[in-house]
Amino acid sequence: MSGTAQETRNAEDVSRRLLDSAAKLSYDPALEVDWDAPLAPGLHGLNPEWSTLYGTALWDGMSEAQRVTLTRHEVCSIMSTGIWFEMILQQMVLREQYGKNPVTAQFQFALTEVADECRHSIMFARTCEKMGIGAYAPKRPILELGRLFKSLAVAEVAYASILVAEEVLDLMQRDAMRGENVLPLVRTTSRIHVVEESRHMRFARAEVRERLRDAGAARRQTSAVSVALVAYFIVTSMVNEDVYAAAGLDVGEAVRAAGGNEHHKAMLRSGAANLVKFLGEVGLLTRPAMSIYRRINLI
């Protein structure tokens, strides 16, 4: 068997195992989440350690009520960004599978992933609604760039971008699902997302490897920078500046404090460790790409 045929077979085997996993371990948020339970007033929206201000003098001077409010708005901002990018990736995955053989496990898992992402987006929207917090949208230029990206991104750029979005959030959500000081609503939605996204990340890794198997140096260089730029726009859009006003803070002061927060930078690097390792393994961690990742504190 040729190397190309073997890699294709390996990707198909991965997809088949993921389909089996999805059949055994998937969730319906409409049933799994207790949407009628009241929100405990003293519980956070995410683990305080993941707040953009945790560890700063500004955080130390905030009341506990302000901290709770801030983390709830931060998690809803992150969820809103998640919805935005999940809509992008659904369109990328569907476009990638257009015209492909529907009897393959790869095709069927790709559609399974799209169905999962639809449920996740609704779940995030209902979570923010339950907390009484409106949507936080990326800035208009980034929204329009996303519109262009979803129409043009293909192959390894599409699937590596999926990894960027999911890997950065994975550790944060794993902490949230175990956090006793985090709202049960967020803990449950985080658990659902972590379990189901672990399959999506395995699928994306297999697809990236397959798409890059015959790629030359020029293509890898271009793809590496493209994926890094996606990471830049996702990370810089996760927490909208308006969350600080919602917590009664001076927005300019809060933005400066967050920008210099070494603790939060270290948390981002820890969340991106698996992503960075994988990108290096497949040749997508070039010098230009690394300079972009450093700007957003992923390395």
Rank of each mutant, 00 (worst) to 15 (best):
G42E: 11
R140W: 12
L185T: 03
L143M: 06
S190D: 12
I234Q: 00
V93F: 04
A254I: 12
F109W: 13
L148P: 00
R199K: 08
S291F: 07
Y54H: 15
R294E: 13
G248D: 08
F233C: 00
G271M: 04
E197C: 09
S77Q: 06
S161C: 09
N274A: 15
G179D: 04
G252K: 10
S270W: 10
N47T: 15
V239Q: 00
R211S: 05
R147D: 14
R174G: 05
T52F: 07
D214M: 06
N240A: 13
L298M: 15
G55D: 04
S151H: 09
E32C: 13
A165M: 15
M1G: 11
P38A: 10
E167R: 05
E241D: 15
G248R: 11
K150L: 09
V227Q: 06
E74Y: 05
S80A: 12
H200A: 05
S291A: 14
M123Q: 05
T112C: 07
L53S: 01
E262D: 14
V182H: 04
R256H: 03
G248Q: 07
R295W: 13
S226V: 00
F109V: 08
A204Q: 09
V168G: 03
V282P: 00
I78A: 12
Y136F: 06
A254P: 10
G248N: 08
E180I: 11
E64P: 00
A176I: 05
D36A: 15
M92E: 02
A57Q: 15
N274Y: 10
L18Q: 05
E74A: 04
L268H: 12
V235K: 05
T188E: 14
K130L: 09
